[in-house]
Design a protein around this nucleic acid. Structure first.
Lengths: 233, 233
DNA sequence: CGAACTGTTGAGAGGCTTCAAGCCTAGTGG
DNA sequence: CCACTAGGCTTGAAGCCTCTCAACAGTTCG
């Protein structure tokens, strides 16, 4: 059963739960399943790289990835983390540009690729689906604009608090309010847009103030309300 | 002829030049012209306000507007400037959210409003048009992501240089390389995401270094290449 | 002409970055 | 199994960039 290492089990490649596809007919979901190519990606592997030409978009059915851009002197700016149920790479695909971000696996993942022609076919033949696509894009655009305002006006302290809240709201926490996503200090810094040392200092400050607890990379929320207040959202 | 103050002349409300509408048929352009409502907006007037519900989107056929968000303690963050040929407010309209920005006129403008149902009708019945819409949204999303990386990683000095280049590339300059768009120092600061005083100091620095010339609000490029180098784009 | 806004300059404070050094942890190979 | 190494983490010190506050000049407009 070596193959199972590289070919995910069918129950792990189910796309019908994706909100993204909620307006597709059964026949269209069928086409999707027929056209998809699914694969397991190990931690650290790169799904696509900035500047490459994409041939399809990806549906994440397991794991966590980071999507980032490479800025000045190679410093990476993390745009977002994605998890099960998320879709990646459709932006560059639809505008027919080269990928403007890199997608790297940080927790072993299963991804299904849908070829570009299939996406185009669905958009063209299902108005509900293309309308939904437009709405998703508009919402992401608003979020990006919000983030621009944030990052331009807030202090590093506020932005770090905001990132913690964002992780809290989008990723699993256990019964102790401990974030299950494991990020390096550097990754946190690249998300906030600051130096690694600053993140470290601020995190220990938050800890001393009794807002969070730290055990290596595990971050536990103690006083979430105060973090939200600092984040100013 | 008082009316001409409030009702723009027909030749100023021509929409067929808009790249945005390039995939529409003549009949569809006709519908657009039939459904549109055009109006003159004086400098300082507000077209729509953050938080308001929109009933249509606007095509700019004359003038300049600034689109901004209100951040922490009322500080405005300018998202972009728009001019003739640009479209505004379609993002919030399509996602059926409340407006997340305010649009304010900074140079006397003429705008045509197209009702939401008309937009929806065109999207639904003309695949080329809705495909084009999707591509525009994707491109704007990339630009927003680029801007996030910039603003998170660059110094105020670099960002100011970048804004100057952006204005240079998107707005008219006369034969002396003088920007025709007239912005206050505060507006520049709100674009860069910094304090007014910082913009003033950096502009005089650029001037002392022989990169630009300043005459009140008129900014003249002397050494554009060096500005680009500082901007790091 | 005065009021209100815009632009300019200086001084001081502080947030954040950078550099440097040392510690800790996990993974590797003998 | 343990020493070793590399990469991640932490802390301190120094300094710079940028912000804030304050005062004042210049400009615009009713």
């Amino acid at each position: 059963m070596r193959a199972s290492l590289y070919n995910p089990r069918p129950e792990e490649t189910n796309l019908s739960d994706f909100k993204f596809f909620k307006h597709l007919t059964d026949a269209e979901i069928g086409k999707l399943n027929y056209d998809k190519t699914c694969q397991i990606y190990k931690k650290g592997s790169i799904v696509y790289r900035e500047g490459s030409r994409l041939t399809g978009f990806y549906c994440v059915t397991r794991g966590i990835l980071k999507i980032y851009k490479t800025g000045i002197d190679g410093k990476e700016q993390i745009i977002r983390f994605v998890k099960k149920g998320d879709i990646i790479a459709f932006r560059s695909l639809l505008s027919q540009e080269l990928a403007c971000t890199t997608a790297k696996v940080i927790d072993d993942a299963v991804l299904c690729q849908i070829p570009y022609p299939t996406l185009l076919f669905l958009l063209q033949n299902n108005w509900k689906f293309s309308h939904w696509m437009i709405q998703i894009l508009c919402r992401e655009l608003r979020e990006a604009n919000d983030y621009i305002t944030d990052i331009a006006q807030k202090s590093v302290r506020e932005r770090l608090a905001e990132v913690l809240i964002l992780l809290r709201d989008n990723f699993d926490v256990d019964e102790n309010d401990t974030l299950q996503i494991s990020l390096t200090r550097e990754e946190l810094a690249n998300m906030v847009g600051t130096a690694t040392e600053s993140v470290i200092r601020l995190l220990s400050e938050f800890k001393q103030d009794g807002l969070i607890d730290l055990k290596g990379r595990r971050i536990t929320f103690i006083d979430e309300a105060s973090i939200r207040k600092i984040a100013n959202v």
